[in-house]
Simulated assay, not measured.
Amino acid sequence: MPEQSRSAAAVWSEPGFAAAWAGADPAGEHDLLALPRRIAARLIAAELPAPRVVVDIAAGPGGFLEVLLDAFPGARGIWLDASAPMRELAGERLARFGDRVDFRLGDMVDPAAAGLAEGGADVVLSSRASHHLSGGELRAFYRGAAALLAPGGWFANLDHIGPVDAWDRRYRAVRRAMAPANRQAAPPHHHDYPLAGAAEHLDALRSAGVLDADIAWKAFFTCLFIGRAAPAQPAADPTRPHP
């Protein structure tokens, strides 16, 4: 990780900051992330009804992983994040899953360094983290995440994008008006502006090898990017004559 990104990421290791950020998420009817998380689970289940391993990269408090583990009771979850305080918060939230969750500290751009095996995950998730990365880091993130996928595995990234200026202003104004009055503001932290647009995310995902990819949901400046890796090729029949 470049020094600038490493310095910006240091704030996530502060317990007070991590707790304040997690506490700023709206709940109940104001939780705008509940629907795209469920959409991701349903899309995956339609073609992969029984995933065995779900990896959540830069998992934070574990909200996305929680939805997938509820949707797939037979799946084991791997939580990965660089923040030890987030590990504590996620441990509380995911405690009901017991030994179905394996917690690992590691860099989102290099998940293999945390011991995650290439090709070992049926589902890879990430949420509200990749927008902190520069262009080169973003592509490295998608490559590292895609490398974890087993053939036919699914990748889902729920993250913020950078709309053009006029639409960014409109979205932010309307979103503020729709937020609950008692919502706690998230503490300020580094973003690598200008944020990558939706087309850049899709291009990076497809360049990483997940060619079957799309935007399954979008609200304001947040998108659910989702795609499926190519399935395994059937083994050649040695008795079949070559054309």
Results as ranks from 00 to 15, higher is better:
His189Glu: 10
His201Ala: 05
Arg206Phe: 08
Ala177His: 12
Cys223Lys: 11
Asp165Ile: 07
Ala235Asp: 05
Asn182Gly: 15
Ala185Tyr: 08
Pro231Met: 04
Leu195Cys: 05
Val123Ala: 00
Ile161Glu: 04
Pro180Tyr: 09
Gln184Pro: 04
Gly197Tyr: 05
Asp122Arg: 00
Phe220His: 13
His131Arg: 08
Arg170Ala: 11
Ala199Gln: 15
Pro111Arg: 02
Ala196Gly: 11
Arg170Ile: 14
Leu133Asn: 00
Pro234Leu: 11
His131Gly: 06
Asp122Ile: 01
Ala173Lys: 11
Asp122Asn: 00
Trp154Tyr: 08
Pro163Gln: 05
Ala150Asp: 01
Ala129Gly: 14
Met178Phe: 10
Asp192Trp: 09
Gly120Ile: 00
Val210His: 02
Ser130Glu: 06
Ala146Ile: 04
Arg175Lys: 13
His191Thr: 12
Ala114Phe: 04
Arg143Asp: 15
Val124Phe: 01
Gly152Pro: 01
Val123Ser: 00
Ala150Gly: 03
Cys223Trp: 15
Phe221Gly: 10
Ala179Met: 14
Pro111Ile: 03
His191Ser: 13
Gly119Cys: 01
Trp217Ile: 07
Leu158Asp: 05
Ala213Gln: 08
Gly119Pro: 01
Ala196Arg: 05
Arg170Tyr: 14
Asp203Asn: 14
Gly227Val: 06
His160Leu: 10
Gly136Ser: 14
His160Ala: 13
Ala219Trp: 13
Gly119Leu: 03
Leu205Val: 15
Leu148Asn: 00
Ala145Tyr: 02
Pro163Trp: 02
Pro194Ala: 12
Gly115Leu: 01
Tyr193Ala: 12
Ala113Glu: 06
Tyr171Ser: 10
Ala147Met: 06
Ala232Ser: 11
Arg172Asp: 07
Ser207Pro: 07
Phe155Ala: 09
Ala150Glu: 02
Asp192Val: 10
Gly153Leu: 00
Arg169Gln: 13
Pro163Phe: 01
Ile161Gly: 06
Ala140Cys: 14
Gly162Pro: 02
Thr222Glu: 13
Ala185Phe: 07
Leu224Ile: 09
Tyr171Asn: 12
Gly152Ser: 03
Asn182Val: 13
Gly152Asp: 03
His201Ile: 12
Gln184Asn: 07
Ile161Ala: 05
Ala156Tyr: 03
Gly144Leu: 04
Asp122Ala: 01
Asn182His: 15
His131Thr: 07
Pro151Leu: 02
Ala177Leu: 14
Pro231Cys: 03
Asn182Glu: 15
His189Pro: 09
Arg172Cys: 07
Thr222His: 09
Ala198Asp: 14
Glu200Lys: 10
Leu138Ala: 14
Gly115Ser: 06
Arg128Asn: 15
Glu200Met: 09
Gln233Trp: 13
Ala181Ile: 08
Pro188His: 08
Pro187Lys: 08
Arg172Asn: 11
Gly162Val: 00
Gly115Lys: 05
His132Ser: 13
Val124Cys: 04
Leu149Arg: 01
Pro188Gln: 09
Pro187Ala: 12
Leu149Glu: 03
Asp192Met: 12
Arg206His: 09
